[in-house]
Design a protein around this nucleic acid. Structure first.
Lengths: 345, 345
DNA sequence: TTGTACGCGTTATCAA
DNA sequence: TTGATAACGCGTACAA
């Protein structure tokens, strides 16, 4: 039989072209010989590799990298694409190299994903469709899919308010109002939404302050001690009088919330009876497993990955450029055990 | 100038073949026209894609996936290979599909990595060199690189013994001595090494028991409460008398250790003054950041990734099959703040 | 030192 | 319904 016939059969062009008998004969022979179409040759001929590239900045240290990657790989597989992955460890020229290498290998599009929400001042240069996940470009030049952080702050405030809390301390990453180039800007955004709602509800900023803490467990622990303890900067082992401490703490992420839990336990404060703790992230192996389990706002990492790939594949297959806009994905409130009603009200 | 000349220049065959002047002329022209050799065509011609595939089983939920992947990608990049990644979410037929797809795309080798230490009863079938990271095959049929868990258990016991501890409770994953097909078998292995050393030191098993707990923070919390608390199964808020509780706890991983920290804090026990806690993993964002920071044994995830790729590339480039043996990588003791000397002696 | 021509394994076009 | 043949973009043996 001929090469053409084989090609037709393996591409579904057999109907109306190949006699059923021949088709069977071909399939049999293929099975017997272990024949499989060569993807490389196919790519060369069709000028389509059905490969996408993804470059990440900190896959090794981020608890979320996996979720984002999994979302991206799932979506890609679902659309018949394979993913070429590269991690830059935050090294800019490596990112450019990776993208250049991707081009050489003729991937059909690339997604650039950061592990913390960032506003990138510079991006790898390429003529390939480039799509951003969890970060935005220097101007609105690329399609970017990021979490709706501001709204998450609002949701947090409304939820806590609805449970009767009035003295709520937010433990933010850096302080509010700062705009950080190339740094994680999620903290200020969350703080902004949070403060807006509280202001709207007439809660004075002195009652519900926003305190700059870091992003880690120990930072959350130290900040909580300062807010809840009676010593200078919380150095003491005792706790402040009830009406001088918050009834709820909104932590910028689940790790900070875990630090708060640790501090509360050492202070003899029961969560949520004496203090409510609201996290953010829904971090794998952490949020659902600390004691008590964290009520938290889930960051849509998986969705960012899949959404980015979906948009990319759409653009690639339609031959258009992805629209240059920012798409906001909502955070979902996950109710667990660390938040309760205001005990004194 | 000729195609040959260009080809020679781009493949380093220019010395002795191409006049330096011509070479410069070619390079200039290439820059001006933005010419880059087509990787697909090159792959087809040389029958080498310089691509490796990696299939993982649970990238989204594992805190270690990133480390392993980063190690693999680094090593691959260093050797001039790109990585095609696929995550199966533990779905076996998807793994087979992925490997089949990899073959079609002519990757030159594949590494199969699991996120928990496993003994796989079945592996994807392929004629490609297949290499295992963090798991072993059904028989010793593949090259596998895994952590030396047994020795880690020994190290833990020796370290704690050296600090004067005699009553040490190990919080293991499942109970000791079980052999689990396709499940995480790290716990029993760690317990084995741990028990061996204690037995050798003449410490009775009643003094240093191995308690089956799970792998999570809440499991560690519950187990710690049972071991340290005075109520039935630790339900009470009080703690056992000093001589009836361990002076040190060896947790099967850092999450369990974190649960212990939480429980200790709520019981008013100071770490490491009243109780030492030894973890294992050196989990990112956790071990170094809980309070107090965890003394722990670091799992060599990055090294497993890089070692696997190194072996794979060696095999690929020498045209040999990777040797069918298991390679053990050591865990490193990371001393931080959660372990101290035995307070009572 | 340079140019010509062939083949890598496909798919697409066209003729039989 | 089938089969021959020309690209796809490159590497290389060989002739010039």
């Amino acid at each position: 039989m001929s090469v053409t016939a084989v090609s037709f059969v393996f591409n579904g062009n057999d109907v109306g072209n190949i006699a059923p008998a021949t088709k069977v004969r071909i399939l049999d022979a293929a099975k017997e010989l272990g024949y499989t179409p060569d993807g490389v040759a196919r790519s060369l001929r069709k000028q389509k590799t059905h490969m996408l590239g993804i470059v990440t900045d900190a896959i090794a240290s981020s608890p979320f990298a996996g979720r984002l990657l999994a979302g991206a790989m799932d979506a890609a597989a679902g659309r018949g694409y394979a993913m070429l992955a590269f991690d830059s460890r935050d090294h800019r020229d490596l990112e450019q190299d990776a993208v250049t290498e991707f081009s050489r290998r003729k991937v059909q599009g690339v997604v650039y994903a950061t592990m913390g929400l960032r506003e990138m001042s510079t991006l790898p240069e390429t003529t390939l469709p480039l799509l951003l996940a969890n970060c935005t470009g220097p101007d609105g030049s690329h399609f970017a899919v990021i979490p709706d952080e501001v709204n998450a702050g609002r949701t947090a405030a409304r939820y806590l308010l609805g449970l009767g809390h009035r003295r709520i301390t937010m433990l933010s990453g850096p302080g509010p109002g700062k705009r950080i180039k190339d740094g994680n800007m999620a903290g200020p955004l969350r703080a902004k939404g949070f403060r807006n709602v509280l202001r709207g509800a007439g809660v004075p900023a002195t009652d519900s302050p926003i305190v700059g803490a870091g992003w880690s467990i120990d930072a959350g622990h130290a900040a909580a001690l300062a807010v809840l303890g009676d010593g200078p900067d919380g150095q003491g082992r005792g706790r402040r009088p009830v009406h001088q401490r918050p009834t709820a703490i909104f932590a910028v992420n689940d790790r900070v919330a875990t630090g708060v839990l640790l501090a509360a336990a050492s202070l003899g404060l029961r969560v949520p009876d004496d203090l409510s703790v609201l996290g953010l992230d829904d971090q794998e192996q952490l949020a659902a497993n600390v004691v008590p389990s964290l009520t938290t706002l889930a960051l849509p990492h998986r969705q960012m990955g899949s959404r980015a790939v979906e948009m990319l594949v759409d653009a690639v297959e339609s031959g258009t450029r992805p629209p240059a806009r920012v798409e906001l994905l909502p955070l979902e409130l996950i109710v667990r055990d660390s938040v309760g009603p205001n005990p004194s009200g």
